[in-house]
Design a protein around this nucleic acid. Structure first.
Lengths: 138, 138
DNA sequence: CTCGGCGTTGACGTTAACGTAAATCACCGA
DNA sequence: TCGGTGATTTACGTTAACGTCAACGCCGAG
């Protein structure tokens, strides 16, 4: 058994988390500085919980989708104040969510169009390869 | 009639093109400097053809999908050398296309997951709104 | 002729998102 | 006790993708 009693919560060190997501510790500290993470401390070491791991995952996903850290932070902040936020905050959060949805939709359209382009280019490319004379393997 | 004889090709000024895509002239010049556009010149003025317009459109779409200008340029360069490129170039182009496709696929997955997150957050948000006491609309 | 408007070329400034390096701390095992 | 291993803070550096500004050219209307 690795743990008995009330199953102490799983924690992560900064480099552990860094390896999990293939980023550097620097990146993780930077995200904290930008208000995206709020790890515990033991002495002066940072202790990350699953909550932080999830946040980091969401942050990185947001980044891959082209959102800025500031955008992501705003969502996270509003989300954190969730069950007890005031009406204005909640309304703002709904606005943000709608914005993000619109973004995603435009991206999907862009992906569709980009795929068509890629198909086209690949087609021409293969034609060009066919037309190459020096194709006597050996 | 605005044009007779062999229907002269439609051209664009830099600010015209800029308006079409809601970017600044500076951006367009910058893209040229980075090898993404190659407009004609009349004196020292830049003259853009439909080919350039299409390139710009593709470039901006690529950007929205998170590609760097350098990545986009490499594709464009190889595409330009297309019908007569050597085998190594063509092979490289196919590699690039496959990379981009992989990117698009990961993005689609990210979009799917992000949508789920948004749905979840929106759900909680609406619950919180319901639970607000001060909702006696005057 | 000259004036306003658009275009051009430098050149330096700016922002986001980290990278990198130096100095310091803390614990752990030989 | 010492030396390595990993963590922390502070601070300056870097890259991509433009923004901004100055100085100049060209040209058509008045």
């Amino acid at each position: 058994m690795t743990s008995d009693s009330t199953s102490l919560p799983r924690t992560y060190s900064i480099s552990e988390l860094a390896r999990m997501f293939e980023v550097t510790p620097r990146t993780i500290r930077f995200y904290e500085q930008e208000g995206l993470l709020e790890p515990q401390r033991r002495g002066q070491m940072r202790i990350y919980l699953d909550k932080d791991r999830v946040r980091l995952k969401l942050t990185l996903r947001g980044k891959r989708l082209g959102f800025s850290l500031a955008e992501i932070r705003e969502v996270i902040e509003l989300y954190d104040a969730l069950p007890d936020g005031n009406a204005r905050q909640l309304q703002r959060l709904l606005e943000l969510l709608a914005e993000k949805r619109a973004n995603l939709q435009r991206q999907e359209e862009d992906i569709r169009l980009m795929r068509k382009e890629l198909d086209d280019v690949e087609g021409r490319c293969r034609e060009a390869l066919e037309a190459l004379p020096e194709n006597s393997e050996d």
